[in-house]
């Protein structure tokens, strides 16, 4: 069970995440994007999901990552991500509810390069019963 006391709390990601041109090129090649000057709009999920995994699976929160399904996703992009960005990623647990035994957690991720907010995203993650 997810700890209900975690709702409303913001957790800072442990590490800074650097974006390289190679990271962008690799992502672009999968979707046949030839303009690699900026990252594609969904690129930031690569950073957010790994940060969610390390934050949400901590024992004090208790998400079972092996039973996780992605329910929905939203991005708000203040400027495109470029090579050389170094992000601090936070995760805020906004809501938690249980439906048919599944735990449904909605998490917000803010990616800051220094003091600049570059991308906010919202993910609904379903931990299946």
């Amino acid at each position: 069970m997810i700890n209900p006391d975690s709702v409303g709390r913001t957790f800072a990601g442990a590490d800074s995440v650097s974006v390289s041109q190679s990271d962008i090129d690799t992502f672009c090649s999968v979707i046949s994007e030839t303009n690699t000057t900026v990252a594609p709009p969904t690129f930031s999920i690569r950073i957010s999901l790994s940060q969610y995994e390390s934050i949400l699976t901590q024992p004090e929160i208790g998400v079972d990552w092996t039973r996780l399904v992605h329910g929905d996703q939203k991005f708000e992009i203040f400027r495109p991500i470029v090579a050389g960005d170094v992000f601090k990623c936070s995760a805020t647990i906004e809501t938690l509810r249980v439906a048919a035994g599944n735990e449904i957690v909605s998490v917000r991720s803010d990616l800051h390069n220094g003091s600049e907010l570059v991308v906010s995203s919202w993910s609904t993650l379903v931990v299946r019963a």
Binding site: T37, P40, F75
Partner: peptide
Amino acid sequence: VGKYVTDWAGGPATVKEYSARF
């Protein structure tokens, strides 16, 4: 689907918001 959007809009820097339910 994002690639479809950016191809129409004029490149990967054009998107301000993007959301979907799976």
